[in-house]
Amino acid sequence: MSSPRTTITTPLARARGHGASGEGAHHWWIERVTSVSTLLLFIWFGASLLLLPALDHRTVTEWLSAPVAAVPMLLLILSTFWHLKVGLQVIIDDYVHDEGLRMFTLLALNFAVVAAAAWAMFAVLMIALGARAGA
């Protein structure tokens, strides 16, 4: 690698593909992408809740049964859980110093995040598709 004075490569470009696992820059980038998508989806979510006339069961399920709400809600779940998985992973990387315990904790984190996201998505699909089937 040339000295910093003679390169026009950005720090991010230099970091890509390097680091212990070879994917630190990718992890960093996913954290940024999902933070933007989560922010946009939560603006939609917050505005939707504030605009709903009530937050009772009937109003909420009628709202969520329309594709225009169900699809962004599914994306919100995907984006939020992806972002929180990446974020919690950094905390585990920093504070769980024993390598074996760290691997176990990361494994548990991945399972828990996928299970919770799947549960939430299934609930949205039940509401949306159940209403469609006339249930």
Partner: peptide, 21 residues
Amino acid sequence: TGAGLATVGAGTLVWWLAAAA
């Protein structure tokens, strides 16, 4: 705050959706 949102916040979201369903 990230850890709090990721646990309590995400748990509340799942609970809300599951209860609605």
